[in-house]
Nucleic acid binder design. Sequence first.
DNA 1: AAGTATTATCGTAATATTGCGATATTAAAA
DNA 2: TTTTAATATCGCAATATTACGATAATACTT
Lengths: 110, 110
Amino acid sequence: MGITKSEIFTAEQNKLASLFKALGHPARIAILQYIINQKACICNDLVDELGLAQATISQHLKELKNIGIIQGTIEGKSVCYCIDEKLWKQIQEEFNVFFNQEVIVTSCCS
Amino acid sequence: MGITKSEIFTAEQNKLASLFKALGHPARIAILQYIINQKACICNDLVDELGLAQATISQHLKELKNIGIIQGTIEGKSVCYCIDEKLWKQIQEEFNVFFNQEVIVTSCCS
DNA sequence: AAGTATTATCGTAATATTGCGATATTAAAA
DNA sequence: TTTTAATATCGCAATATTACGATAATACTT
């Protein structure tokens, strides 16, 4: 075990969980905040700002790229990472759809 | 390694990441959806509905309880798990605060 | 072309997560 | 009180994640 049984869940559940999961690390939250505020968008600058090794930052950037929330464009010998605003809003919307589900209150807790 | 360096991040970053992380598993998404729709709120019913062992469901319920998004009240020999609507809305709000940060567009990507 | 700077990838160690059987705990029922 | 039912916890195996040094790949500079 240790492996998630994705096959017993719907595609939507797996998708939503993977989005949450990608944001479920403080380094990735910090990276996104730096990029948003344009304090840093270059991998090396992020390495200086956060206290993590270059290999580690690169790995986190990859995970963020995987869900599409950021994209990287080559700028000379470095890479500029930016928020994909369309996907940013789309992910926010997916989260809100989830949270806006109406809670049925025929609950045994009430 | 393998351990997250929480000490280099802010409390807010760690908190937000832990909320995302708790929702970052399809079983926990599915559990929340079942509870919301009141298809099931009893641990055993969730075991029947999802294809996971009782010990596994109990573990996932614990993680959801840990962030406060659900609460359990004893109902005879079983436990009824319900959404904590206040926290539900609070978590949604925290996510929206994060997503509503204005993206500065002096970006090198544009 | 050789050197330099930046990022990605590989390999690996340490730790965390997922999942489950077995067992403990708790509370109703007989 | 014994039995039964429901849930929590323990212990463990398999896999995933986190982190980093070393190295490869890429592209500018001289």
